[in-house]
């Protein structure tokens, strides 16, 4: 059903820390690995060993440079479905294959009813929908819906594959609808932000901004105490000080 749920029980989503992400791609490949055999199976690779290798991935890691010159910053930027609260990708779907779950707000595509009209991908501002040519249907991040409730996995592993793999711990998963949750508090502390808020899709996923950089030049003045009493060449001064230290 493409009518959006009036409200969702939970607002499950990801919080991605741009201050910590090193762009290692683990979230992208572990996502590919889990999902090519999971709910979205298969995630087709086109021409995998040929001249134009590309395929369906539900998570992609960009790298941007911000600002200019030496003051600039490199930011690695993983991008997947943001499980928006009011996403047009759902309402434009003519078949109801694209829907937002009432229970947890996860936005899914039903691979059995999708006709592959691609309109939802046109409606997504975040490029989160990937058309699978071999399968003829639309694929997208499922928030690992087939992991997070999976009784076959131990409790601690009922989290998205990308979150479990992330070596730096830059990815966090939880209920952003509950402001007491760890993720919500993280977002509050680090003033997490929405992507393209003006479009009104109300993304559930949040991004944490890079922290302010720290410049050693500020510390320079604090540099050591020129010893007033000792005189002579630097070496003599040092030796005198060392003797004092040792005779203490």
């Amino acid at each position: 059903m493409t009518a959006l749920p009036a409200a969702t029980g939970k607002k499950l989503g990801l919080v991605i820390d741009l201050d910590t992400c090193v762009g290692c791609q683990a979230c992208a490949t572990s996502c590919k690995e889990w999902n090519t055999a999971g709910y979205s199976a298969p995630l087709t690779d086109e021409d995998p060993y040929g001249s134009d290798p590309h395929g369906a991935w539900l998570n992609r890691v960009h790298a941007f440079e911000a600002s200019d010159g030496i003051a600039s910053q490199t930011v690695h930027f993983p991008r997947s479905c943001l499980h928006c609260e009011t996403p047009a990708c759902v309402t434009v779907c003519p078949t109801g294959a694209s829907y937002k779950r009432g229970a947890d707000g996860i936005v899914l595509v039903d691979p059995d009813t999708c006709i592959g009209c691609k309109l939802c991908s046109w409606a997504c501002p975040y490029g989160a929908r990937e058309y699978d040519t071999s399968h003829g249907v639309m694929k997208k991040c499922t928030l690992c819906v087939d992991r997070i409730y999976n009784d076959h996995l131990p409790e601690e592993d009922r989290i998205p594959a990308c979150v479990r793999a992330c070596p730096t711990g830059a990815r966090h998963f939880g209920d952003l609808g509950d402001e007491t949750s760890a993720v919500s508090q993280l977002v509050a502390e680090r003033d997490g932000f929405d992507l393209l808020p003006t479009l009104g899709y109300k993304p559930v996923n949040k991004y944490l901004p890079p922290r302010k950089r720290r410049d050693a030049r500020q510390s320079a003045p604090a540099a050591g105490v020129e010893t007033a009493h000792a005189t002579g060449a630097a070496v003599e001064r040092l030796f005198a000080w060392v003797d004092r230290v040792l005779s203490r």
């Binding site: 741009l18 762009g23 992208a28 590309h54 991935w57 992609r60 890691v61 960009h62 790298a63 941007f64 440079e65 911000a66 600002s67 200019d68 003051a71 600039s72 910053q73 490199t74 930011v75 930027f77 991008r79 932000f193 929405d194 992507l195 393209l196 991004y207 901004p209 890079p210």
Partner: peptide, 17 residues
């Protein structure tokens, strides 16, 4: 798009693939 405006002009360094 990236929310990195606070840092200045944003340019693509590397495409995902």
């Amino acid at each position: 798009a990236t929310g990195l405006g606070r840092l200045g002009t944003v340019r693509v360094l590397e495409q995902p693939h």
